[in-house]
Nucleic acid binder design. Structure first.
Length: 451
RNA sequence: CGGGGCAUGGCGCAGUCUGGUAGCGCACCUGGUUUGGGACCAGGGGGUCGCAAGUUCGAAUCUUGCUGCCCCGACCA
């Protein structure tokens, strides 16, 4: 992509309303534009990152056996009356009336709707287990939206819903999603720790929040240092092996990990003081098991092997890709801007022409651009006639993993300069060596994050 | 929903107290000189000062009402 033909409306100064670093940087890097309180347009750079997040989430859902569908944003109030939540949900639900005076709503979540799909089409235990997910915009009319897309009213959400014949198999479905989340966040390039969450009226131990650790995180977390070195299951993990999956979950839940809301000082004091980690985190995923809460009132039943009808056992599993984008910035930035994980960076390489219009640098850049593009790199070529300083500042701001810098001075020595955004290291190399270095990185990145 | 704050060109701000018809930096346009970490000179375009009433000879400025946005708290992916 040529920067001159792209659209990155950067701001030198962040608008006053932006408070936290991710919001400021998203506005400055031209990723989003606020349209109303808690409602944002996604501009090319922001959209590109969000799509990558979405795709990783999708691949890991598919791998774990979930099946993608797409449910609408607008729902009929009737379904919600069946579950009783139309009255219960309160003002967070945006209610709409259509031209026929029918009560509609902008979906804040989809339990009712997916249960309706299930009950219409599934009758037998032989069709289970089933896990349906979709990635769709949700709307919750928060009293106080804030922190940009971190806490917007409209947000993108992956929500999966599992259906099982009984408690035990439902628990196995929950474990599969748990493991899938470990893999998802690992591929997103962040450390996310599952923490015991409030299960509400249902009780039990089947609800976890996944928190990305970031100094600027909203919640205080307490966890055992063991979590820093636990292995994340590889791409080959066998989701059909219930025993294996359960053992992975056990490894990831046996040590203490709680947010301040669930924190229990008595249990915490049992953790060796040297192993106590008091950090901050951002909630990016939440999974829970709710049994027959919706299947019962909504009549979502299947016939079991004994010929009896039973309401299915369900769980739901959410990840907010729009929020994840902001959380990744909270977890990865410096004074100059964003530092994207390799797996979601909007481009792999920023190719910087320090003197656009100069025959030599133009030629060298055009050639490198072609070579890199042909080698499978997504390259953003800054071919504009801005000055060097401005180009460096832009490249640092938008946080691409690599900057390949071509100027007359280097060309005199037959060299280009390669800068690593996260370490800040720069080195002068000839073209071939620079491309080789990038290709090595590319294959390592694929091996690490490609899934 | 309680408490607080803000609203002046695309962004950041001054001007409001003490009323006299709008200004600065950045960005943008033109020309020139420049060109390896946000250049310089000259010229230029762009704002019914959030909206509506009122006071006044005259309102960005005073009064009243409304709207929008932000922050703290309670609530949440």
């Amino acid at each position: 992509m040529l920067l001159s033909k792209y659209f990155i409306p950067v701001l030198k100064e962040a608008p006053r309303e932006a408070e936290i670093v991710s919001h400021k940087l998203m506005l400055r890097a031209g990723m989003i534009k606020q349209q109303s309180a808690g409602i944002y347009s996604w501009l090319p750079l922001g959209l590109k990152v969000m799509r990558k997040v979405e795709q990783i989430v999708r691949e890991e859902q598919d791998r774990a056996g979930a099946v993608e569908i797409l449910m609408p944003t607008i729902q009929s109030a009737d379904l919600w009356r069946e579950s009783g939540r139309y009255e219960d949900y309160g003002k967070e639900m945006l209610r709409i009336t259509d031209r026929h005076e029918r009560d509609m709503l902008f979906g804040p979540t989809n339990e009712e709707m997916v249960t309706d799909i299930f009950r219409t089409h599934v009758r037998s235990y032989k069709d289970l287990p089933l896990n349906l997910y979709h990635i769709q915009w949700k709307f919750r009319d928060e009293v106080r939206p804030r922190f940009g897309v971190m806490r917007g009213r409209e947000f993108l959400m992956k929500d999966a819903y599992s259906f099982d014949l009984d408690e035990a198999s439902s628990r196995a479905a929950y474990y599969r999603m748990f493991v899938s989340y470990l893999r998802t966040f690992d591929r997103l390039g962040v450390k996310a720790i599952p923490m015991r969450a409030d299960t509400g009226p249902i009780g039990g131990d089947l609800s976890h929040e996944f928190l990305i650790l970031a100094d600027t995180g909203e919640s205080e977390v307490f966890c055992h240092a063991d979590y820093m070195k636990l292995d994340v299951p590889g791409a080959g993990v066998d989701y059909d092996d219930d025993g294996l999956i359960q053992s992975i979950v056990e490894d990831w839940t046996k040590s203490y990990a709680r947010t301040d809301e669930m924190h229990e000082e008595a249990l915490w004091s049992n953790v060796d003081a040297a192993q106590q980690m008091n950090a901050r985190g951002i909630e990016v995923g939440h999974i829970f098991h709710f049994g027959q809460k919706y299947s019962e009132p909504m009549g979502a039943k299947v016939t079991g092997p004994d010929g009896k009808d039973v309401p299915v056992y369900m769980g739901s599993y959410g990840i907010g890709p729009s929020r994840v984008v902001a959380a990744l910035i909270e977890a990865g930035h410096d004074d100059n801007g964003i530092i994207w994980p390799a797996s979601v960076a909007p481009f792999d390489v920023g190719l910087i022409n320090l003197r656009s219009g100069d025959e030599r640098t133009d030629g060298a850049c055009a050639s490198l651009y072609d070579q890199l593009t042909n080698a499978g790199f997504d390259v953003l070529y800054d071919d504009t006639d801005s000055r060097a300083g401005g180009k460096f500042a832009l490249a640092d701001l938008i946080g691409l993993p690599w900057q390949l810098i071509i100027g007359p001075r280097g060309l005199d020595n037959g060299e280009v300069e390669l800068k690593n955004r996260s370490t800040g290291e720069r080195e002068s190399l000839n073209n071939e060596a620079a491309i080789n270095k990038l290709m090595t990185w590319q294959s390592e990145t694929k091996a690490r994050f490609g899934g």
